[in-house]
Amino acid sequence: MLSVEEVRKTFNAGTVNERIALDGVTFRLEEGDFITVVGGNGSGKSTTMNAIAGVFPIDSGSVRIDGRDITALPEYKRAAYLGRVFQDPMMGSAARMNIEENLALAYRKCRRRGLGWGVTKKERGKYRELLAQLDLGLEDRMTSRVGLLSGGQRQALTLLMATLNKPALLLLDEHTAALDPKTAGKVLALTEKIVTENKITTLMVTHNMHDALRYGNRVMMMRDGRAVFEAAGEEKARLKVADMLEMFEI
């Protein structure tokens, strides 16, 4: 489904700020996999996601989704395959546009944008239903500017936007890190619900070992721009937080 092969990326090559962010990271995901990714600060987790999403060109290696090589595609074209939620709740939605307009933007992700209405009546009903499922009261605020929402509400909305057209791959980069524990729990539960109900292949970065073990069927650890450990299924189920922390120390 997703295959990341020997991806390398050096930032600021040839300067004093040279930094090898990805040093041949390689891994594969099967259809329906939900993999959690852990690793220290600067180990290359976000850079891996950005490499998949095409935020910058990579130095070498390849990224394939569903057998198609997307390594050379610009970011906005890859978006057709991807749903993304960022760590910063402000990043995933347009603050000056309202809730329904944001959802409508996401709904048209894979379509040509022409001179038809940006939001149609028919869609509004659908969005209202979807928002109601979030249980945050957003269905009654569809014409409020997104900038007025709280971080948790915005993150829930971004999650909804990212999964509106079932993406081939969902990328979650510490998407609950900026939220208070209670809201983080809610958003995580919502994530799991959406991901399992729609069987979306998902890659979730987290610094929380509990969450890394609790969610998903696979776990991966990164260090120095490489995937250094992986566990799946039974093996993952047997892992304890202490085991993970120990590996972290190496």
Partner: peptide, 15 residues
């Protein structure tokens, strides 16, 4: 409008 509001978001929505 989306591109002017939040470039990163706009790209991630295929714009």
């Amino acid at each position: 409008r989306a591109a002017g509001d939040n470039m990163k978001m706009a790209r991630s929505q295929g714009i």
